[in-house]
Simulated assay, not measured.
Amino acid sequence: MAKGVKTIAIAGAGSIGCYVGGCLALAGRQVILLARPRIDSALRKDGLRITDLDGHDRLIKPDGLSVTAEPAVALPGADVILVTVKSGATEEMAALIAAHARSDVVVVSLQNGVDNADRLRATLTGPRVLAGMVPFNVVQSPGSELPLRVHRASAGKVMIEDGVPGLVDLLDVEGLAAGTHGDMTAVLWGKLLLNLNNALVALSGLPLAAELADRRWRLILAGQIDEALAAMKASGVEPARIAGLPPALLPSLLRLPDWLFKLLARRMLAIDPQARSSMWDDLQRGRTTEIGELQGAVLGLAQKAGTPAPLLNSVTALVRAAETARLGSPGLAPEQVAPPGGFRSA
């Protein structure tokens, strides 16, 4: 990127967006947050608190933040736009960027799923659009807690598609490690394998660490990953290594006895004890989840390739039912999630 002060717009300042934007602002970057009215009001009144798994606790006072609920204010002056909305709002945000941003802006998708960058590109014919991947969980404090706090509950480096010199240097700051990757398609499919667990956290209502510590839930995750790997192989998709192990070995690791899994998967279990998934949060707030962009993406591959995916179908149906009920997490037991026939144990 050309030298000089760059303005970074966070397009969708929810949990991830507030954390990313907060870290950048604390590092002295020029940042403007585009937020929903509730978050806009909270940040203007009391500022933003940034905490993480490593024990850091930093506060940005209201006068240290630039925040708005108006796209016409946030987007026109941006040199870089980081898109952090849920996948279901991708086309809406693309239309706002097209209407308000400069044609030479760099747009980075920091969203779950595998096709959001392509969906942005379908609308944004002028701006450079790059795929990105956020590996960590961010938990937002309850609305009653002020200042609003966003807490990074796990570790990892944000990966961004290579191709714009200087972009990673702009974004790589304390609390927000960033790097580039030459094959973001592989990275996004590798991350999606791990994101198949989001639905299990949502259905169980358990914190992520507690859910992963229970082999019964891990067997369901392993079964989903088996189905996903079969569909990917049949479709010529090669997922990248994300969690330290080659993707093909993840199901075997997940099926280990609890004591051995805890011993060997310390990196996977390095999670804040209270962290849950964004899909759980969506159910709690009565919002549409990203099940269609996660399990649904694999089901699309499986259907085209003709590979079976009964467990992915079962999990998807249960999440859809919970969305319709609008009663929050259904608090299911693992036996209520597995399809007829029980778990595969080896």
Rank of each mutant, 00 (worst) to 15 (best):
G175K: 06
L327Y: 07
S314H: 15
Q336L: 02
V168E: 03
S235P: 15
T307Y: 09
S329E: 03
A117H: 05
Q303P: 00
G4T: 14
L203K: 13
K3A: 15
I39W: 04
A72K: 13
K191I: 00
S15Q: 09
R149N: 14
C23Q: 14
R287H: 14
L110R: 04
V105G: 14
L250F: 11
G4F: 12
P257L: 00
E145D: 15
R36E: 03
L269I: 01
A265Y: 02
D54T: 13
R287C: 01
R102T: 06
A210F: 03
M1C: 10
I39R: 12
A74P: 09
G223A: 14
G88Y: 07
D118Y: 01
L254F: 10
D46M: 06
G113N: 00
G341T: 08
T180M: 04
V5M: 12
P142D: 14
S41I: 01
I39D: 01
M133R: 01
R121N: 00
L301S: 05
R344V: 02
L254R: 02
A234M: 04
L256D: 01
N137C: 02
V237E: 08
V107K: 02
G132R: 02
L43R: 03
K157F: 03
R215Q: 00
A333E: 05
D118G: 03
G21N: 14
V173C: 09
L75Y: 11
L250K: 06
A322M: 07
V107C: 04
A186E: 08
Q303A: 13
G341M: 05
K191Q: 07
R215W: 00
A153I: 07
R344Q: 00
N137Q: 08
L264Y: 11
R344D: 04
N198S: 11
Q336W: 03
V5Y: 07
L208R: 14
M159V: 04
L245D: 10
